[in-house]
Measured scan of single mutants.
Amino acid sequence: DWEDIVRFLRKLFELGEEVVIGDWHNHHREEIKRLIEWLEKHF
């Protein structure tokens, strides 16, 4: 279910905002944000 995936990604992203998950999070933050925005537009 796409909504569950979007919710999971958003939760992960919000957690990442508070607890910076090292370089991985910083590197992928923009991609995650773009992916969430893309999914919201399409689903």
Score class of each variant (00 low, 15 high):
D1T: 05
D1Q: 08
D1E: 05
D1R: 08
D1G: 12
D1I: 13
D1S: 11
D1Y: 14
W2L: 02
W2G: 01
W2T: 01
W2A: 01
W2M: 02
W2V: 02
W2R: 02
W2D: 01
E3Q: 10
E3P: 04
E3V: 09
E3Y: 09
E3A: 08
D4E: 06
D4C: 15
D4P: 12
D4M: 13
D4S: 15
D4F: 14
D4G: 10
D4L: 14
D4R: 11
D4H: 13
I5F: 14
I5A: 02
I5G: 00
I5M: 07
I5V: 07
I5P: 00
I5T: 02
I5L: 09
V6Y: 12
V6Q: 02
V6F: 14
V6C: 02
V6E: 04
V6K: 07
V6R: 06
V6P: 01
V6H: 12
R7L: 03
R7A: 09
R7Y: 05
R7W: 07
R7P: 01
R7T: 07
R7H: 05
R7V: 03
R7Q: 07
R7G: 06
F8Q: 04
F8M: 11
F8Y: 06
F8V: 04
F8K: 02
F8G: 02
F8H: 06
F8P: 00
F8E: 04
F8L: 08
L9Q: 00
L9R: 00
L9T: 00
L9D: 00
L9M: 01
L9P: 00
L9K: 00
R10H: 11
R10Q: 14
R10M: 13
R10K: 12
R10G: 03
R10N: 11
R10I: 10
K11N: 05
K11Y: 14
K11G: 05
K11Q: 13
K11A: 09
K11E: 07
K11H: 05
K11M: 14
K11V: 08
K11P: 02
K11F: 15
K11C: 14
L12E: 00
L12F: 06
L12W: 07
L12S: 01
L12Q: 01
L12T: 01
F13T: 03
F13D: 00
F13M: 06
F13R: 02
F13K: 02
F13V: 10
F13L: 13
F13Y: 10
F13N: 01
F13H: 02
F13E: 01
E14K: 05
E14R: 10
E14M: 12
E14P: 03
E14W: 07
E14S: 05
E14I: 03
E14G: 12
L15D: 02
L15T: 03
L15A: 03
L15H: 09
L15M: 07
L15W: 05
L15I: 06
L15S: 04
L15K: 03
L15E: 02
L15Q: 04
L15Y: 09
G16W: 15
G16V: 14
G16E: 03
G16Y: 15
G16Q: 06
G16D: 05
G16T: 12
G16P: 04
G16C: 15
E17A: 13
E17F: 15
E17C: 04
E17M: 12
E17W: 14
E17K: 14
E18Q: 14
E18N: 12
E18R: 08
E18I: 12
E18H: 14
V19L: 10
V19N: 05
V19M: 10
V19E: 06
V19K: 05
V19D: 06
V19T: 11
V19W: 06
V19A: 09
V19Y: 02
V20L: 10
V20G: 10
V20R: 03
V20T: 08
V20D: 08
V20F: 15
V20A: 09
V20I: 14
V20N: 09
V20H: 09
I21F: 13
I21Y: 03
I21A: 10
I21L: 10
I21H: 14
I21D: 12
I21R: 05
I21S: 15
I21C: 12
I21M: 12
I21V: 14
G22P: 12
G22M: 04
G22W: 04
G22F: 02
G22D: 09
G22T: 07
G22H: 07
G22C: 11
G22R: 04
G22S: 04
G22I: 12
D23P: 06
D23S: 04
D23I: 09
D23Q: 03
D23G: 10
D23K: 03
D23H: 05
D23A: 05
D23L: 07
D23Y: 09
D23V: 05
W24H: 09
W24S: 08
W24E: 07
W24P: 04
W24T: 09
W24A: 09
W24G: 07
W24K: 10
W24R: 04
W24Y: 08
H25F: 14
H25T: 05
H25P: 12
H25Q: 10
H25K: 08
H25V: 09
H25Y: 14
H25S: 03
H25L: 15
N26S: 11
N26R: 05
N26H: 12
N26E: 10
N26Q: 09
N26W: 10
N26Y: 04
N26G: 06
N26I: 11
N26F: 08
N26M: 07
N26L: 04
N26D: 14
H27Q: 04
H27S: 10
H27I: 12
H27C: 15
H27T: 08
H28S: 05
H28I: 15
H28N: 05
H28C: 10
H28E: 05
H28L: 15
H28W: 15
H28K: 05
R29T: 08
R29W: 11
R29Y: 13
R29H: 14
R29C: 15
R29E: 06
R29A: 12
R29M: 08
R29V: 11
E30P: 03
E30Q: 12
E30T: 10
E30A: 08
E30S: 03
E30N: 04
E30K: 04
E30C: 06
E30W: 04
E31I: 15
E31F: 15
E31N: 09
E31Q: 12
E31V: 13
E31T: 12
E31A: 13
E31Y: 15
I32K: 00
I32T: 02
I32V: 06
I32G: 01
I32Y: 05
I32M: 03
I32W: 12
I32P: 00
I32L: 07
I32H: 03
I32Q: 01
I32R: 01
K33E: 08
K33G: 04
K33N: 06
K33I: 11
K33F: 07
K33P: 01
K33T: 08
K33A: 06
R34P: 02
R34T: 04
R34H: 08
R34D: 05
R34M: 14
R34V: 14
R34A: 04
R34E: 10
R34I: 11
R34W: 08
R34L: 13
L35A: 05
L35Y: 03
L35P: 00
L35N: 01
L35H: 01
L35F: 10
L35I: 04
L35C: 09
L35R: 01
L35S: 01
L35E: 00
I36K: 02
I36D: 01
I36M: 06
I36P: 00
I36A: 02
I36T: 04
I36E: 01
I36N: 01
I36Y: 08
I36L: 08
I36F: 13
I36G: 01
E37P: 01
E37D: 04
E37Y: 05
E37R: 07
E37G: 06
E37F: 05
E37K: 05
E37N: 08
E37V: 05
E37L: 07
W38E: 04
W38V: 03
W38C: 07
W38M: 04
W38P: 00
W38R: 02
W38F: 08
W38S: 03
W38Q: 02
W38Y: 04
W38D: 01
L39F: 07
L39M: 02
L39N: 00
L39R: 00
L39T: 01
L39K: 00
L39C: 05
E40S: 12
E40T: 13
E40D: 09
E40R: 10
E40A: 14
E40K: 12
E40P: 01
E40V: 15
E40G: 06
E40W: 15
E40H: 10
E40L: 15
E40N: 12
K41H: 14
K41M: 08
K41F: 11
K41S: 12
K41Y: 07
K41Q: 05
K41R: 14
K41T: 13
K41I: 06
K41A: 05
H42W: 15
H42I: 11
H42Q: 03
H42R: 06
H42E: 07
H42G: 03
H42C: 06
H42S: 06
H42D: 02
H42V: 13
F43V: 12
F43S: 02
F43W: 13
F43I: 13
F43Q: 04
F43L: 13
F43R: 03
F43D: 03
F43K: 04
F43H: 03
F43N: 02
F43P: 01
